[in-house]
Amino acid sequence: MTLAADIAVADPVPPAIGPWRETWLSFSENKGAVAALAVIVVVALVAVFADWVAPYSPIAQDRDAFLAPPFWAEGGSAKFLLGTDDVGRDMLSRLIHGARYSLLIGCIVITISLSVGVLLGLVAGYVRGMVEELIMRLMDIMLAIPALLLAIVIVAILGPSLTNAIIAVAITYLPHFTRMVRATVIAEMTKDYVTAARVSGARALRLMFVTVLPNCAAPLIVLATLNFSSAILDAAALGFLGLGAQPPTPEWGTMLAKAREFVQSAWWVVTFPGLAVLVTVLAFNLAGDGLRDALDPKLKR
């Protein structure tokens, strides 16, 4: 490795590095972003292996241990490391299983709003005219209402449940993706390589998806990462308001909704689920910032 590096330094022509490697090199310079990525990997692993990592079932109740404090606090024991909630469920196990829900919510929301948003944005940017006007007006209307409020309206129509909360949050993020893809498509369509592709006989679908879309990839990845964190936050907020996942689902926001009664008596029931949300969201935001700097050096200050 050292030898190869020495040769590379000695060589006047730098060796070609692929775009992925280049992005990673630039990303890894940012210590905060790398740490955030490590946190994300840990949370993801915990989520995937929740059944093995968690000491108990997230819904198993221990009738001998209601509101047991965490092990370092007075009266706590190593049996329940982070204590138990009001019906004797192990907090640690619930938090671990909660990671599953939060990451799943983020993934599904981003998958839905990314794919639908990209489709709408491509069509609007490519077809232009009335279709574009219609799509973009609709997006403007959706942006006029704050995301959380719009999500609440949608949940009020569909009824409170985890699935409906996911749908609601996904819908509220559509405009971001649509607007960005449309703007990029319009800018790219005037470039020579698109004209070249068109002249050589590429059809509309090929032009849209194969020629133009890859050039939106970098900003799309950044937007997806940053919206991933907002999705977790918004879904947790809906859960907290009783409009998202329903008890006894160990979703972090839903856990907090119940925990409100215990602000006076059991701080651990309140503290840990929120801390989990904060750490996860923070990690995604940091990683998103790092990714943006790595993918778009122009934006770097």
């Binding site: 964190s229 936050l233 947790a236 907020a237 907290f240 926001g253 907090l256 925990a259 409100r260 602000v263 006076q264 701080w267 309140v270 503290t271 689920p273 929120g274 801390l275 949300v277 904060l278 969201v281 923070l282 935001n285 940091l286 910032d289």
Partner: peptide, 29 residues
């Protein structure tokens, strides 16, 4: 500011209640 931006404010509120209202008794709940 990054922490503030990532804050689940519903939890932040509960934390402040625990600290300032319950523990210190400075502010109403």
């Amino acid at each position: 500011s990054l922490a503030g931006y990532s804050m689940p404010i519903f939890w932040w509120g509960l934390l402040l209640i625990i600290l300032f209202s319950v523990t210190l008794g400075w502010t109403p709940v």
